[in-house]
Write a protein that binds this DNA or RNA. Structure first.
Lengths: 253, 253
DNA sequence: CGAGGAGTTGAGGCTAGTCAAGGCCCGTGG
DNA sequence: CCACGGGCCTTGACTAGCCTCAACTCCTCG
């Protein structure tokens, strides 16, 4: 297996689903490792990191319980990121070789998989949105709101956050220096939006935090003027496409 | 339907796959629109944009032929981004309500779908990697290499790029001002790495362009020292998990 | 008790954002 | 036909914000 995790138990003879336990700082998936399983995070939190050629550790995302991991490797066979536990965590593991057969035998799992994948795509867009802000305090505000939303999804208090990752990891995700993260924390704290105590963050003024997070760049960037301009009128085409063709296409590109 | 596209033809009575033609600047998917179909881009190129509260148009990604679109909406029922054609384009449309049944009737399509989803996740991580660079010329270099890789995937020349998007869209994706994109283009051109003529870009020195793209931030950021540190040893757990539970979990979070 | 990581804060230089002007190209309309 | 307007792109000048380097504290761990 591609990780420092301990196999705990098979859950069922028929189903190749295994529960793994991952200790803090242990690596569940190694970047570049062959794809063998997909995982669903059961408890704890993880970070997905890409080690760039110059040795810089780029954090791509933080994973909360329920998230799907390792699925990216399906199309190229290798893991694009490493996955490291920020605290003790447990995951369900699902062998990739048996994934296909399993999907057919169990439509419920199949649907759940589709949903989870869809969700992961949405989250990826959310990460991009976070990084799109210019000002560093705005980035941090968005990050905190993002974490808060995750807590709410998980049914926990969205006001009290316990950040399991270090400042450097946050800085990496947001694309700023880790000192800047520190400064941005004090900016938000001085403004009375949050109370910060090391990794414990309490959101005091959600509304003002949201307002700050809205600032993207300049004053509206005149983008509001650029209306959709639907032209849309086009000539009909001959009906050559087909299902197999479509299937081939989506594999190809 | 949520778009200014023209329906062209049904491809098969049994299969709800339709070919749509989208004119330049037309919108295939509107942000916030209900999820009704998934699409596979057949020809042309698109951009996915998120209009933020302050009116700023955040470009999330550029789509090339073969990419899957609209799938993010599955889990929440609404499109998280708008999708706009950068040039005349065609897409295969697949009704979402019939998607489930179709997947079961045609495993080949199902597998293709999984692969495409996996690919989309990988691409999302790639976008994050692009934005992670600090220096603007490095960001642009990565963008050009990214476009080049897409061209190679499509079987076209990876050296001659025709950028269908305007500078402002590139700037939005990279998280910089559009003037900065201009300046970065001239930096790369002056360095002899590329030849730029409006939207036509020729890569002259791939190797040096790659070298420039490697610079992430500072000199190694001492991250190279932070070795994995596998602790990994943990106590076994009782075997409570199960397939239905796992399915429910991946839906829940 | 010392070593080292994590976090915070300060000083200074430089990148990139902002504002502004000008050129180019292409659409519409006089 | 050419004038005009309006994108798109580029370039310049100024300035704000962030990165870098550095020092210091706190805390954990061996």
């Amino acid at each position: 297996m591609g990780g420092d995790a301990d196999e705990v138990d098979d859950t069922d003879e028929d189903l190749p689903i295994t529960l793994w336990r991952i200790g803090e700082h242990a690596t569940l998936l190694h970047e570049g490792a062959p794809a063998q399983s997909v995982y669903v995070l059961r408890s704890g939190s993880l970070k997905c990191v890409k080690t760039l050629e110059d040795g810089y550790e780029q954090v791509v995302c933080f994973a909360q319980p329920g998230e799907l991991l390792g699925f990216e490797a399906l199309h190229c066979g290798r893991q694009p990121t490493s996955v490291v536990a920020l605290e003790d965590a447990t995951v369900y593991a699902l062998s990739m070789t048996e994934l296909l057969g399993l999907r057919q035998r169990c439509p419920a799992l199949d649907d759940a998989l589709q949903l989870a994948l869809s969700q992961q795509l949405t989250r990826a867009a959310g990460v991009a949105e976070m990084m799109s802000a210019v000002a560093s305090d705005v980035r941090l505000a968005r990050f905190l709101l993002w974490m808060s939303a995750r807590m709410a999804e998980a049914g926990r208090s969205p006001r009290r956050l316990l950040l399991r990752m270090c400042r450097r990891d946050i800085a990496s995700l947001l694309g700023v220096a880790h000192e800047t993260v520190s400064r941005s924390f004090t900016i938000l704290a001085d403004a009375g939006h949050v109370k910060v105590e090391n990794r414990e963050v309490e959101i005091l003024d959600l509304e003002h935090l949201r307002m700050r997070a809205r600032n993207t760049r300049g004053p509206l960037e005149e983008a509001a003027r650029r209306r959709p301009q639907p032209t849309g009128k086009g000539t009909p085409m001959s009906a050559l496409p087909w299902l197999p063709q479509m299937a081939a296409l989506s594999v190809a590109a």
